[in-house]
Design a binder for these strands. Structure first.
Lengths: 297, 297
DNA sequence: TGTAATGATACGTACAGACTATCAATCAAC
DNA sequence: GTTGATTGATAGTCTGTACGTATCATTACA
């Protein structure tokens, strides 16, 4: 059986007239009769009552008519959707993000979703190291992450820079003052940090920052993900140095202070697998480029 | 596009190897490559990433793969069901019945349903006259009805004979006695009868029965359907003469008495449209024939 | 560097589906 | 009854295309 049989069958069932159906199909009547006969033979069921003057569907034919129309409709929708996925108008896009959905990331996601309503964005929170791996293995299509980035297999570009701030429990003695803090004041404080294996760039930058201020952070606690780190700070377990992106959502239990004399910032990058990136991923990357700040020279 | 394309595509998507897929399809590899290329061209989407050493589905291909399998499954089920409807193993069967589903009718329906679980029996209560019309117009496939039957267009045979009984309100003076009643005792009683136009055979037989007993029934009320008639009797509106089939289900408000010296009975017939009876209707008729009483000579 | 594996390409062929012509059956008009 | 129109089926021919064989290009691996 071929789709031709179904197409012809539907035409005859709709017109209940071989001649007119043939005309609609742009073929002559004899081959139409033949194909219908073939279909009946193959299915093993008479589909039409035919006298020389009238054509009517049998009960079996009526059933097949309904089914055939549904099948052709499904096929039509399937091919259209397939084409859309190819062009990147539709599909699923797995997106990784490190800690919090900063307003910068949300703006990009929102804008893309608005223009591509058929696209399903699936968000995965994972560390920068995990994103490198997931992008390489195509478990995610897009990553919002911090260095290091495996430039061999991944394409990437810089999006935003977020300065560092110190996160203190509100109950902490240093939390009273709103002025920028000197990092040397943090000497001996218990630090909460992500594991270096998960966020090497972030980790090293903070260490360097502290070293420059003449202190060596006393890491008492490791925690995965900014939200977890901040929860621990809120609980009074220790202090941490986080990006202003994480500090966007204020919490009562946490007090943020800028760092005096340091304009260090952590870079947020967008990355994708540069080999066989899905069309959707490519679209996303293109759309995201618009959000690069100061791109006008 | 033809089903061939989908079949070939599914084979390649399952094997992710053109050579092996071709072998399974019993064709050689080159035409398989061609057909897949055609499919991609027609849909307007790349379906496989092909290097010379590996074949992988694109996101678009993965979507089409799922859809194509579903479509092939639907098609398979549709053709099987169509064949079943043709042979009478499945389908819908509209059955008409006059008044009540007597135990005789129920036995036939039950037996048929047991042997043909894929068949949906749709019951329609309608008078014998309506059934004649509905059978001719194919609104129903099978009728359980009383004469007259239009032998021109309908095939039919006799099933059961149900003797007549008198139905009295329990409060009626004549309802005390359990012995057979003489019809002459009913002189002057208000009769409830179906309209003659709907149940001519039944109507005329009762009139003849009464006439033989020397009375002319005083028809005060007409009602469509035995259940309606019996409800009116129960309400004390009048009396009626009904078949023992209707009397099968006893009600407290109604008292039935046999009729003395009359072995008249109303015949229940099974009828169908003898032109292009649906295969299912034919099966039903054949199955019902087993229930003709005294068929052994 | 040579060999095996794999999908794409080139080209000839056979068959199936399409066309034209015609037939058979039915219905309607007179 | 007879004739003409309508309609689906059949017969015979032709053509497009799906398939097969042979071969190539590329890649992986020994």
């Amino acid at each position: 059986m071929e789709l031709r049989h179904l197409r012809y069958f539907i035409a005859v069932a709709e017109h209940l007239h071989f001649g007119r159906a043939a005309k609609e199909l742009n073929i002559s009547q004899p081959p139409l009769s033949q194909q219908i006969a073939q279909l009946e033979e193959e299915i093993g069921a008479q589909l039409f009552y035919r006298t020389n003057r009238s054509v009517r569907l049998t009960p079996a034919g009526e059933h097949l008519f309904r089914e055939a129309k549904a099948i052709m409709g499904n096929l039509e929708r399937a091919t259209t959707q397939t084409r859309k996925i190819h062009t990147g108008e539709a599909g699923k896009l797995a997106v990784g993000y490190t800690g919090m959905l900063s307003s910068g990331i949300i703006r990009i996601l929102r804008s893309f979703k608005d223009k591509h309503s058929d696209v399903e964005l699936i968000l995965h929170r994972m560390s920068s190291a995990m994103q490198n791996e997931a992008l390489a293995e195509r478990r995610i299509d897009i990553g919002f992450l911090c260095p290091p980035i495996d430039g061999e297999t991944l394409g990437f570009f810089h999006l935003y820079d977020y300065p560092f701030v110190v996160a203190l429990p509100s109950s902490h003695p240093l939390a009273a003052d709103t002025s920028p803090i000197r990092l040397s004041e943090l000497k001996g404080e218990p630090f909460i940090m992500p594991p270096r294996g998960e966020e090497a760039g972030y980790f090293d930058q903070i260490i360097a920052l502290c070293n420059r201020a003449g202190i060596s952070p006393d890491i008492r606690q490791e925690a995965e993900g900014v939200t977890t780190i901040l929860s621990l700070v809120a609980a009074g377990i220790g202090i941490s140095i986080v990006s202003t992106a994480a500090a966007e959502t204020q919490r009562e239990e946490i007090f943020y202070r800028e760092i005096k004399g340091a304009d260090d910032a952590i870079g947020l990058y967008l990355a994708w697998n540069r080999q066989d990136a899905s069309p959707l991923a490519e679209r996303f990357v293109q759309a995201a480029k618009v959000f690069i700040p100061n791109q006008d020279k």
